[in-house]
Design a protein around this nucleic acid. Structure first.
Lengths: 408, 408
DNA sequence: GGTATTATGTTCGAAGTTCTAACAAACTAC
DNA sequence: GTAGTTTGTTAGAACTTCGAACATAATACC
């Protein structure tokens, strides 16, 4: 039961029905390919004539291609299989993180092409934009033409004004109200550039990426644990953005209002318990804020090192991780109580220690969820190899072609 | 950018465009009435022919009626005004609370008819159903025929399985897995009966009730403070229900994980800080759980009494309220950070003391919200006279006629 | 009072979709 | 080689939006 917004609705025009069915056919081909027109008609519960009509348009638009004939041992004419067509256009994904920035090229359907490149992130904007542009031009040189670029999706660990293309606040980068769009627009004239917060992008990756397409749920939450905590909420197949594109900031929901100081200024935030820095602090028994200069001992010691130590039998390291695990679970319980999603995805370095911490996380979740069913909410680990942030950045550019049209 | 669910989509059929535009016309008439066909055409950015076509159908269906001609001092033919037509059908709203159950009759558009009735809630199901049925039959006797009843909307302070019509868990009523639908279905054969949690219903009331229709936002949160805390989230004009219809349970998000014991079993829940019982406990300086028998002194002392005391100059009473106010604000900050709504509505007895507590609430919100903009999120008080729970119960029955069709 | 002007609401036909039914195409089984 | 079966296409009916012309009803002006 959705209320129509009387000051922002969309009328059905002559082509609206077509547009709707076109997008349905496109997603069905994407999720079921290879698939024949006849199978589509059955899936859609309509007649083959209508499917032919729509598919012909998609063929003309080059969004779909015909492949080999089917070959089963059934009677009758063989079906001609349909596939989504990766045209010769491409997309660029950029994942900006505190230390490194990662780059990936994909085809127009979001499938990775070549290897992921990276360079160290510079916080001075001009330098950063220069380096980024150079890397992008180097990547496409010889292989692609910039005019075939569908767009550049950029993901940032912080709040973003998508419309204006401004990074409002990214503490990890030291960026505050940084206009990232304008200088990039100047470099890549005419190319669509999309900015998004990395937690939100991770959530997008889980509903738009190309794996497990049919089993996917349309109501999920992604929790990304790194130096900050990013959370993306997908409701009814759509990312919750909120009034200021800041929906999902569960990282600063408190576990204890008078708990440890958080970088946001408040205290006791979830982030202050479970961010990588917090876990390391717990190990070293003191507060190593990312702002203060670290001692020699702690300077290059990462969360991965901590996990390695724990695996080597360092009891203190294991204890630090498991403590984080408990707090992680307690916070997840809040998210589950508040959102009641089908599945919670977790990403970040700490997931590499999942075998060491899973039981603590699950126990904590059960402890604070309101019902048994909520306590049993699916938890899925997204390993770093799947590059959820980059895949989310890709989705910013390639997914709109498959999205439902806005209607009513 | 909404993902089409490949296993749950809706194809556009021949009548789909019509259905979409029909609902748009219906909502526009509802929100702008009285309005002419020509004005509708301008609002919808389409031609008058199309409007005539759709309006004629609505007239035939008796959902819309023509009224008086317009009378301005402009040239040209006078417009004929259109109104949504309250047919002779009616709806029944029921608000079940711990002590009393409230009843209201409305017309088919959700406008109140007659006075609100009430009776004391009995926790034994058979007795309750009997009393409720008697009251409903008494209300409609002589005025209405049961066959003209559009439906009964019932609102419960607890979790609800809407499909099966079971109250899963309503601590305030002492109900656990109570099948409320079946016995009522038996009494009111063929009448549509809708159950919902009262916090969620309150949220519905704010987007579907008949006041301020044009200024309304489509992304809001309603926080209802009573013996428990109910929260309803409206995202994109639609109530967030979650996998188990339990989305919105912010009441059990902790302020401090080792804070006061909560009735849910965990400790430090927001509810344990700001429920009416908690505020009273704070005043009396001890824990008065709703489960233990109260002393003579505290037995009939309500939150309204506490507010009255505070107004009379009782410093302890004021302190108890303002302490609750601070915790209310801290929790609201979490909701604002997590959801980033356009507006947060607050209902419950404590709103009657809003002038005494507003500054504390707002200060606490600012203290824990991540940005200045989030700290300035609109807060609106919904006084008890507006009966948000009952209006939400009505919306369960009368709103679907105006809702957007499900498409794609 | 009569005529010009203007806005509302309806009608008619064109264009775009879905949908039904029939038909052509292509392949297996016997 | 023929019957049977499934796929994909085509032609036309039914339904909608849409543009333009038309009828209706009111005011303004002479």
């Amino acid at each position: 039961m959705r209320r129509i917004n009387p000051s922002d609705f969309k009328l059905a025009k002559q082509g609206t029905s077509r547009e709707i069915n076109r997008q349905i056919v496109l997603t069905l081909i994407r999720t079921h390919q290879p698939i024949s027109r006849a199978d589509l008609a059955r899936l859609m519960d309509t007649n083959r004539a209508n499917v032919t009509f729509i598919v012909n348009q998609l063929l003309e638009e080059n969004l779909v291609r015909e492949g080999a004939k089917g070959s089963g041992k059934v009677r009758g004419r063989k079906p001609t299989y349909l596939y989504v067509n990766a045209r010769n256009s491409f997309a660029i994904a950029v994942d900006i993180r505190a230390s490194q920035t990662f780059l990936m090229i994909t085809d127009s359907v979001g499938r990775q092409i070549g290897k992921i490149k990276s360079f160290s992130t510079e916080s001075i904007l001009e330098n950063f934009v220069k380096t980024l542009s150079e890397h992008i031009f180097a990547l496409i040189a010889g292989n692609f033409d910039l005019s075939d670029c569908e767009g550049i999706g950029i993901v940032v660990p912080g709040m973003v004004d998508r419309k204006e293309g401004i990074v409002l606040r990214a503490p990890a980068l030291g960026w505050l109200n940084v206009d990232l769009l304008s200088p990039l627009q100047a470099e890549f004239d005419g190319v669509d550039i999309q900015l998004e917060n990395s937690g939100k992008a991770c959530a997008l990756s889980q509903i738009w990426a190309n794996s497990d397409l049919t089993s996917m749920h349309n109501d999920i939450v992604f929790v990304s644990v790194a130096d900050g905590i990013g959370v993306g909420i997908i409701n009814n197949g759509e990312l919750m953005r909120g009034k200021h594109n800041t929906a999902g900031e569960f990282g600063h929901v408190p576990l204890s209002i008078d708990g440890p100081r958080c970088s946001c200024g408040a205290s006791g935030c979830w982030e202050a318990y479970i961010s990588n820095v917090s876990t390391l602090s717990r190990y070293f028994g003191r507060n190593i804020s990312s702002r203060e200069p670290r001692s020699v001992e702690t300077a290059n010691f990462t969360i991965e090192d901590l996990i390695a130590k724990a695996r080597e039998g360092d009891g203190k390291a294991l204890a630090a991780l498991q403590s984080t695990a408990r707090y992680l679970g307690l916070g997840l319980a809040s998210i589950i109580n508040a959102i009641d999603p089908h599945c919670v995805y977790i990403g970040g370095e700490i997931t590499e220690a999942w075998d060491l911490i899973e039981s603590q996380v699950r126990e904590a979740i059960k402890e604070r969820t309101l019902t048994k069913e909520l306590g049993a909410t699916l938890i899925r680990i997204v390993p770093a190899i799947e590059h959820p942030r980059l895949r989310g950045a890709v989705a910013l550019v390639t997914a709109p072609a498959f999205a439902a049209p806005k209607v009513a």
